[in-house]
Amino acid sequence: MAKAKNSKPVILITNDDGITSPGIRALYEAVKDLGQIVIVAPDKPQSGMGHAITIGHPLRLQPSDLFPGIDAYSCSGTPVDCVKLAVDKVLHRKPDLCLSGINHGPNHSINVIYSGTMSAAMEAAIENIPAVGFSLMDHSINADFSAAQHYARVITEKMLKDKPTKHILLNVNIPNFPLSEIKGYKICKQAYAKYQEKFLERKDPSGKKYYWLTGEFVNFDNGRDSDVWALANNYVSVVPVQFDLTNYDLKTKLEKQWKDKPDRSVKAPVKKIVKRSMPKSE
C-alpha cells in the first residue's frame, strides 16, 4: 500500500482496549477525513500489557466489519503485535502516522511504562513512524469522548502539518471535563507519581488463595510543569516521550567516577613460542 503522490497520508489506528471499544471508534470518527485510515487492533482488551510481544504461539489477523469502507483487522496478539503486523502484513510499508487510543483511563506519569496504548505508539516510534497515544481520564465504557476527540483532531492535524523530528512520540491525556471547561493543552514532563500497591488476599470456594492487585495513586511531584498537575488543573497534557532509557546525567557521572584503570599488578600471560622445523625435502 504505497502512498501515491498528492494522496492522503496513511494513518494507522490501534489501541489496547480492543477493536470493539468505544474509544477506538471515537478516535476513528475524529480523524477519519484526515487521511487514509487503516485499523489493526487487539481482538480483546490488552490493558497493562506494556511492550509485550507474542512469541510462544501463532498470531491471528482477521478482517473486521466494524468500520465499513476501510481496511480494519482484529489481531489475537498484543498492541505491539498489532503495529508490527500492520506494517509487515497489512500496509506492506510504514504508515505516515500512528495513533493509539483513545484509551479508557489515564496513562500519565509512571503509567506510560505499563500502558499497552503507549507501547503500541512507542513501537511505531521505534520504527521512525510519528506516533501519538491518546487517553481519557474516564474508565467508564459510557465515557463522553467529545473533548478527547477535539484534541485528538487538533494534535493529529499538527503532526501531519509539521515535519516531525526523528522518532517523535507524544503521550496525550485528556481530563474528564466537558470541552468548554478545558483550558487548552500544555507541553509537560512526566510526573514522578505512582501507585502505592498492595495485594488483597482472598480464598476461592475450594479454599485456595488468590490475590487482587489494588493501590492508591500518589503524586510525589510538586512541580507545575508535570502531566499530573496539568490534568488536575483542567489542561490536556502533552508529554514528549522517548524509548531511549539511558540516564545520561548518571552516565557522565559514572564515566568520571568509575573510570577503568588497568591493574598493573596483574601480568599478562607470556605466550610460549614453539618453533616448528621445516620438513626436509626429499
Rank of each mutant, 00 (worst) to 15 (best):
G184W: 03
T252N: 14
V218F: 12
Y28H: 15
A30G: 01
S119P: 01
V154M: 10
K267V: 12
L99Y: 05
A41P: 00
V238N: 07
F177C: 12
I70S: 07
Q36Y: 10
G116L: 07
E157W: 04
S21L: 08
S146N: 13
S119C: 03
K84A: 13
A26T: 04
F199P: 03
F243N: 13
G133D: 07
L91N: 01
K194D: 15
D43F: 04
E157I: 08
E29P: 02
G77Y: 02
K256Q: 15
V239P: 05
T214P: 07
A120P: 08
N111L: 13
I70C: 03
A143Q: 01
S237V: 02
N233F: 09
E197Y: 08
P9H: 06
M1H: 14
Y73K: 09
R93Y: 07
V83M: 07
H167R: 13
F217A: 06
D249W: 10
D96R: 05
Y28T: 01
G35V: 00
H57K: 10
G116W: 03
Y73T: 06
E123K: 12
Y28V: 05
T246E: 02
E123F: 06
C82M: 09
F177Y: 14
C82S: 11
G18R: 02
G35Q: 02
D221S: 06
M49I: 08
I13D: 01
R25P: 06
H139Q: 12
G101R: 04
P178I: 05
L231D: 06
D71G: 11
K32D: 10
A148M: 06
G207M: 00
H104S: 15
K272E: 14
T165D: 12
A125R: 02
P45V: 03
H57G: 11
S64P: 04
D244C: 05
P130N: 02
M159Y: 04
M1T: 12
G35P: 01
Y235S: 00
M118W: 05
T165S: 14
G101H: 04
N15I: 01
M122P: 01
S115D: 04
E216Y: 10
A147G: 03
T14G: 01
L91D: 03
S76C: 06
K251T: 09
A268E: 14
K94C: 07
F67Y: 12
F199L: 14
